[in-house]
Design a protein around this nucleic acid. Structure first.
Lengths: 123, 123
DNA sequence: CGGTATCCCCATTGATACTG
DNA sequence: CAGTATCAATGGGGATACCG
């Protein structure tokens, strides 16, 4: 059994502070939520790509979802869309600087997800 | 413009490694997903509570959702359910040790969410 | 090429009522 | 008290076709 102060340390907040943290945490979860956001960011990790390239790189995504998710990512400034005035039109998507600040979150999620898998399945 | 090695460092993986990380990351996101999981964990942070107590502590949750979410959390070993053989029946929910390993993830989500808010709204 | 428009399904959530 | 049953609404996501 842990003491209350140990628990508090682990949660890093009293309930009131936890509630205050709820908003940013939910923001972060929402930005990464859904089946396609992370695959898209990964697809763009190496270099900028065009719509069809991304579409080919990600198994199972429809044009509609790719379009929608790219818009979401653009709104959240995780991806930048550049239109080149060529014929036929060329559109390029790239990760932003801001998207790279996700590193710590994804890393933490990866670590915990791995730990959790062991806890639930293997152990 | 960043060099490729800088980007790689920021993502902490090559695309293939990123893809490998995708599963645990999605596991972690799924466990925390939805409107009620975190509020429930927060409600249980101080001390174990009974169904009605939690229900009163969380604004807007229905009995059905609370019941369902508690089951999910129990399956994921984040919450433990104890039935006391009294009349009327008493059921107590408590956070597990495992649930406290979430600390780093939530902390990272909180930090990034706060940064992200500044990036999107304020700056 | 880089998307939209349309239609439809079904899973999630909610409201309300009820039960052991 | 601690939930479950039932029904209804909402919307996310897929299939397909089409457009500038």
């Amino acid at each position: 059994m842990k003491t209350k102060s140990e628990l508090t340390k682990e949660m890093d907040c009293q309930p009131e502070e936890c509630l205050a943290a709820l908003l940013p945490v939910r923001d972060a979860l929402e930005v990464l939520s859904g089946r396609w956001k992370l695959p898209i960011l990964i697809a763009l990790s190496n270099r900028p790509k065009r719509f069809k390239e991304i579409s080919k790189d990600i198994n199972g995504i429809t044009d509609k979802m790719l379009s929608k998710e790219l818009k979401d990512l653009e709104i959240n400034k995780l991806v930048i869309r550049t239109v080149y005035d060529t014929f036929p039109p060329t559109v390029e998507y790239a990760r932003t600087e801001h998207s790279h600040t996700l590193y710590k979150v994804i890393s933490a999620l990866n670590e915990w997800g791995t730990l959790h898998r062991k806890e639930i399945i293997g152990k």
